[in-house]
C-alpha cells in the first residue's frame, strides 16, 4: 500500500510539474496584462504539434523543441498584438471570450493540418525506468520533472533578478508608474505573452512525450484553471505549488479515492462507477478555495469579493 501510494506520488509529481509550468504562463499573462487566457491550453497543444511537425521535417528532436519554443514565442506575441491589444478597453466578458475564440481557432488549425487522430510523439527521452527502492521512475517522468522544475525556477530567477524581470514586475504592479519611469509597457506585455506561450509550448511537448499527441492537449488549459485560481492568480510561486498539488491530487484520486468511493457505491447504492472523479475533484476543491479565500492560497487580498 505504501509502495502503491509512493508510486502514485511519483506519477502525480511528474505530471504536476508540467501543469506548474503551464500555470506559470497563465499567471504571467494575468499579472502583466490582466487577461485570463483560456487559450493557454491551445498554446500547449500548438507547441507539441509544432515540435512534432519540425521533427517530421527532419530536425533532431531537441532542435525541434527549441524551434517550437521560438515559434511559440512568436505566436504568443502575435496573439497579444493582433487580438488582445485592440481589445484593451473591452469588458471582461469580451476579453475572456476572445481567448476562447483563439482556443477554438488554434484547435481548428491543428485539426486541419495534422488531422483528428492521436499521433505518436517523437521520443525526446529514452524509454525505460530507474528503480528507486522498488518504485519505478521512468526516464520520461524524470526528464519532465527535472526540466519543468529547472525551467520554472530559472524563470522565477529571471523574473526576480534580471533588469527585464524587474521591468516586467513594474509593469504588472503598476502600469502607470511603469510608464512614468520610462518603461515601454506595451513591449513588456508582448514579452510576457511570448514568454508565456513559449513556456506553454515546451510544457506541451513534455506532456505529449508523456501522454501522446492529440488535440485533447488543449483541454489542459481548462484543467490548469483550477490550479491557478487555487494558487492565486497573481502569485507565480503559488501557481508552481498548485500545479504540483493538482498533479498529485489527480493521481491520488485515481489510485486511492476512486476505488474507495466505488467500493462504497457498489455496496450501498445501485451506482457502480464513480466516474471521472479526478476531473471534478480539482473543481470541487476550487469551489471550496474560492469560498474560503477567493484570492487563492498564495494570492494577495484583492477586491474581487463583495
Amino acid at each position: 500500500m505504501l509502495m502503491f501510494t509512493l508510486q502514485l506520488l511519483v506519477a502525480g509529481i511528474a505530471t504536476g510539474s508540467v501543469y506548474a509550468l503551464i500555470a506559470l504562463g497563465i499567471v504571467l499573462i494575468y499579472k502583466c496584462s490582466g487577461v485570463v487566457n483560456f487559450a493557454q491550453g491551445a498554446f500547449v497543444m500548438l507547441g507539441a504539434y509544432l515540435t512534432y511537425g519540425l521533427v517530421k521535417l527532419g530536425l533532431p528532436a531537441y532542435v525541434a523543441l527549441l524551434g517550437a519554443m521560438i515559434l511559440m514565442a512568436g505566436c504568443g506575441m502575435a496573439s497579444e498584438r493582433l487580438v488582445l491589444r485592440p481589445m484593451m478597453k473591452a469588458p471582461l466578458v469580451a476579453v475572456m471570450t476572445v481567448t476562447l475564440g483563439m482556443l477554438i481557432l488554434m484547435k481548428a488549425v491543428c485539426l486541419a493540418i495534422w488531422g483528428p487522430d492521436q499521433l505518436a510523439f517523437p521520443r525526446l527521452f529514452p524509454d525505460g525506468a530507474v528503480d528507486v527502492f522498488g518504485i519505478f521512475v521512468t526516464y520520461n517522468y524524470l526528464a519532465a520533472f527535472v526540466l519543468s522544475i529547472c525551467l520554472s525556477v530559472g524563470f522565477l530567477a529571471f523574473y526576480q533578478l534580471t533588469p527585464i524581470g524587474l521591468m516586467q514586475r513594474c509593469t504588472a504592479d503598476n502600469p502607470r508608474a511603469a510608464l512614468a519611469i520610462g518603461i515601454h509597457t506595451s513591449n513588456q506585455i508582448s514579452l510576457a505573452w511570448s514568454m508565456s506561450a513559449a513556456l506553454a509550448g515546451i510544457g506541451g511537448a513534455l506532456l505529449a512525450s508523456l501522454n501522446g499527441l492529440s488535440l485533447g492537449l488543449a483541454d489542459i488549459g481548462l484543467v490548469a484553471f483550477p490550479v491557478i485560481v487555487l494558487g492565486g492568480l497573481t502569485s507565480l510561486t503559488g501557481a508552481l505549488v498548485a500545479g504540483l498539488l493538482l498533479g498529485v491530487l489527480q493521481a491520488l484520486t485515481d489510485g486511492l479515492l476512486t476505488p474507495v468511493a466505488e467500493q462504497f457505491l457498489r455496496t450501498y447504492t445501485s451506482i457502480y462507477s464513480a466516474g471521472a472523479l479526478q476531473q471534478v475533484v480539482p473543481y470541487a476543491l476550487l469551489v471550496v478555495v474560492l469560498l474560503v479565500r477567493p484570492e487563492g492560497i498564495f494570492g494577495q487580498r484583492g477586491t474581487e469579493r463583495l
Binding site: 471582461l92 475572456m96 481548462l222 445501485s270 476531473q279 473543481y283 476550487l286 474560492l290 474581487e304 469579493r305
Partner: peptide, 29 residues
C-alpha cells in the same frame, strides 16, 4: 456561493459548476 464573488471569480466558479454538473449527469444513474 458564486455570487458572493465578483467578475472574474464568478466566471471561474460557474466554470467549476459546469464541470461538476456534467459529472453529476453521468454519475447520478
Amino acid at each position: 456561493p458564486a455570487l458572493r464573488l465578483r467578475g472574474l471569480y464568478f466566471a471561474i466558479a460557474t466554470l467549476a459548476a459546469q464541470f461538476i454538473l456534467e459529472y453529476l449527469f453521468k454519475f447520478a444513474e
